[in-house]
Amino acid sequence: MKKSLVALAALAVAGVASAQSSVTLFGVVDASISGYSNTARDNRATVFPNAFGIPVYLNQGSVKTSRRELANSGYNSSRIGFRGTEDLGGGLAASFWLEAPISNDDGQQGIATFARRSTVSLSGGFGEVRLGRDYTPTFWNDTVFDPFGTNGVGTNLVSTANTAFGGFGTPAASTGAFTNVGSSNYVRASNSIGYFLPPNLGGFYGQVQYALAEKTKYDSGIFTPNVLNSQRQGRYIGGRFGYANGPLDVALAYGSSTVGDDYYVGTTTKVNTLNLGASYDFGPVKLFGEVSKAKNKIDYEVTPLAGGRPDIDLTGYLLGVTVPVGAGLIRASWSHVKLDQNLPNNPFALNTPDPKANKIALGYVHNLSKRTALYATIARVSNKNGAGYTVGG
């Protein structure tokens, strides 16, 4: 559970270099005083020996942990960036976008890495072609249709669970506190080629993205090193298509991220994600919803006699609402996730139910100006059957 009250300040400064080009400095500084509390309870009863020789089980009781800290990015992600556009004539424009994460609570991370976004693009009547590190199509639905925008402790469980579900993490860890750009394709993908539809399609929008694994291939293949995750890990392909007109916004997204491979065993591990999100603004209230399905699967070049490892499924749901109140905004959401390992039932053992969790979040934002706001958020996660999701911290 977390309660936080903080002032959010965003500063954007634009400078025009010429009539045909512009460069903009932009950013957000977000700080919160945060508190977290987690309690784990053993709900199984103590079992004593009996005539059948059942071993003793002693109830483990409960343990509680808590933490207080000065955090960042509780309402909006702290960041600083530079973006620019040059008019090339004939309806064409060239653009760049460099955006760095900031840990303003301790100052450890600043303009040392553009891990949030690092792209260059060409746009025109055909749409936009974008190259570099960027958001994945499948992440957009998780954040756009979340009243909390996947920021702070209000972040929906669909996002929290997928963050862990799609990680691969084989590349060397980043230095110090710098964001590791080689451990997941869930939120962003590096080395990507993206295409965006033009904005004049009567409310229809869409994008496709392909991210290169950047692995070395050997010809002949017998010279391939016997090293895990050396051939395909890191590759991503996905797309998102939607319709936004008036109060309605709805979008469907699909993506496949290669999270592991073993060349000599002949396996490729992928996380395939399909999600559908929508929002409708009634005026007094705005409703949000999302359904998400993710599958961690192993493709076998030669299927083992035992059938191989079963697929692991992650199912998530999200319902949310925002209510404008004067200069403020009330935000609330409920989210649910369930993890299914598809293990066969064993009639001679106690089968563990599938891990699952529910989360409720409630928040209020009070706008002091167009750039500054105060906010407070409280959230609670209830885990069952071994699930271990938290609100953060």
Score class of each variant (00 low, 15 high):
residue 86 E to K: 10
residue 130 R to Y: 01
residue 364 Y to C: 08
residue 98 L to P: 05
residue 158 V to P: 00
residue 364 Y to Q: 00
residue 331 R to S: 14
residue 369 S to T: 15
residue 283 G to H: 14
residue 115 A to E: 08
residue 367 N to L: 06
residue 14 A to E: 10
residue 142 D to E: 12
residue 35 G to E: 07
residue 184 S to F: 04
residue 282 F to C: 09
residue 234 G to D: 05
residue 151 N to I: 09
residue 220 S to K: 02
residue 118 S to N: 11
residue 285 V to S: 14
residue 56 V to K: 09
residue 359 K to G: 05
residue 318 L to V: 03
residue 271 V to L: 13
residue 321 V to I: 15
residue 114 F to W: 06
residue 388 G to P: 09
residue 358 N to L: 07
residue 305 L to N: 12
residue 302 V to Y: 02
residue 279 S to T: 12
residue 276 L to N: 06
residue 287 L to I: 15
residue 218 Y to V: 10
residue 390 T to M: 08
residue 323 V to H: 06
residue 393 G to Y: 03
residue 279 S to Y: 02
residue 80 I to R: 00
residue 80 I to P: 01
residue 246 G to H: 01
residue 204 F to N: 05
residue 166 G to S: 15
residue 182 G to Q: 13
residue 11 L to V: 13
residue 356 K to V: 03
residue 202 G to A: 03
residue 355 P to Q: 00
residue 200 N to P: 07
residue 150 T to S: 09
residue 150 T to E: 03
residue 59 N to A: 10
residue 235 R to G: 02
residue 201 L to A: 14
residue 1 M to P: 07
residue 187 V to T: 10
residue 47 V to E: 00
residue 189 A to F: 13
residue 8 L to D: 08
residue 169 G to R: 11
residue 260 G to C: 07
residue 7 A to T: 12
residue 210 Y to A: 06
residue 18 S to W: 04
residue 102 I to R: 01
residue 12 A to V: 12
residue 161 A to K: 01
residue 384 K to T: 06
residue 143 T to G: 06
residue 238 G to R: 03
residue 98 L to F: 07
residue 68 R to I: 06
residue 392 G to K: 05
residue 29 V to A: 14
residue 31 A to N: 09
residue 170 T to K: 12
residue 381 V to L: 09
residue 74 G to Q: 09
residue 189 A to L: 13
residue 270 K to S: 08
residue 194 G to N: 09
residue 263 Y to G: 03
residue 216 T to V: 14
residue 57 Y to I: 06
residue 23 V to W: 05
residue 247 P to L: 07
residue 155 T to V: 04
residue 256 S to L: 15
residue 339 L to K: 11
residue 295 K to A: 13
residue 245 N to F: 13
residue 123 S to Q: 12
residue 244 A to V: 00
residue 31 A to P: 01
residue 152 G to F: 06
residue 267 T to Y: 09
residue 367 N to F: 11
residue 236 Y to F: 15
residue 25 L to Y: 10
residue 178 F to W: 01
residue 374 L to T: 10
residue 16 V to S: 14
residue 342 N to D: 14
residue 362 L to A: 11
residue 388 G to H: 11
residue 56 V to C: 02
residue 133 R to V: 01
residue 174 S to W: 10
residue 119 T to C: 00
